[in-house]
Amino acid sequence: MQQYGSLIPVHVDDITEKLQNVFSESFSQPHRSEALPRSKPGFRVNYKRHVLTMDDLGTLYGQNWLNDQIMNMYGDLVMDSVPEKVHFFNSFFYDKLRTKGYEGVKRWTKNVDIFGKELLLIPIHLEVHWSLVSVDITRRAITYFDSQRTLNRRCPKVTASYWAHTPMMPDSLYCKCLALGEPFTFGQLDMPRLRRQMYKELCHCKLIL
C-alpha cells in the first residue's frame, strides 16, 4: 500500500515471495479471490510534468479503459528509455490534427528533431478503446495497430497528412515493444499481468526491461 497506493498491481506471488524473504521459510500459495481495489488516500506519482492520482491508476484495474494521464506518462517512460530513437506524441495530438489540421499542431515539435528519430508513436483514443499509429522514419512506413482488429483507414490517412505538410518528411502496450524492438508475444490472457506491470512501472517511473 505504501509503495503502490493500492493492491491493484499486487499478485499473490508477490506476497508469497515477500513473506519468504522476510521469514526465510516456505509459504504455500494461499487461496485468493480477485484483489480488492483498496487504495491509500492522497497517493500520488510524480514524473516530470505528470501527476497520477489513485483515480488515474485505478483505470489499470480489471477491464477499465486507460485514461489520458496513464497513456501520456507511460508514453514518456517508453520514450525516455530510448530517447535517441523514439518520440512519443501526447494523446491529444491526433485529435488536434484531425480537427485543426496541420496548422493546429505545427508547433508541437518545434523543440524536437523528429527526423533524427527512428520511430514516432502516436496514441489515438477512439472513444471506446485506444489504438496506435507508428511512423518508421527509416522505412518511411506508417503502421496502424488496433487490438480489436477494426479496419480504420482514417487514422493512418490523417496522420499521413501531417507528414505531407512537414518539409523534411518524405513519408498501455504496443509502444514499449516497438520502441525496444521486441516482438509482440502477448495475448488477451496476458492483460491482467501486463496491467499490473504497467502499474508498477508507472509507480517506479521506469520501465521493467
Score class of each variant (00 low, 15 high):
Leu189Val: 09
Ala160Tyr: 01
Gln29Phe: 06
Ser147Tyr: 03
Thr143Asn: 08
Ile122Gln: 02
Asp146Leu: 00
Leu66Phe: 12
Gln188Cys: 10
Asp68Gly: 11
Leu120Gly: 02
Pro41Phe: 01
Val12Asp: 10
Thr150Cys: 03
Trp108Lys: 07
Leu36Trp: 07
Pro41His: 01
Gln148Lys: 14
Leu7Trp: 05
Ala164Met: 03
Pro83Met: 04
Ile208His: 13
Cys205Met: 04
Met198Val: 15
Met191Asp: 13
Asn111Glu: 10
Gln69Ser: 15
Asp80Leu: 06
Val51Thr: 15
Leu120Ala: 04
Leu97Ser: 10
Tyr199Arg: 01
Lys48Trp: 06
Met1Glu: 05
Arg193Trp: 12
Gln20Glu: 15
Pro9Lys: 00
Lys157Ala: 13
Trp65Glu: 12
Arg195Pro: 12
Leu202Asp: 09
Thr59Lys: 12
Arg196Leu: 07
Val135Ile: 11
Gln3Trp: 02
Thr150Asn: 09
Leu77Val: 07
Met73Trp: 07
Glu25Ser: 06
Asn21Phe: 08
Ser91Asp: 07
Ile70Ser: 11
Met169Gln: 07
Asp80Val: 08
Val112Met: 09
Arg149Pro: 01
Ile137Pro: 02
Leu151Gly: 02
Val112Thr: 13
Glu127His: 10
Ser81Leu: 00
Lys206Tyr: 06
Cys177Ile: 02
Gly116Gln: 13
Leu151Val: 11
Ser134Tyr: 02
Val133Pro: 07
Asn67Cys: 11
Trp108Glu: 15
Pro30Val: 09
Glu201Pro: 03
Asp80His: 12
Arg140Gly: 01
Leu189Phe: 07
Thr143Ile: 07
Asn46His: 10
Ile124Phe: 04
Arg107Leu: 12
Asn90Tyr: 13
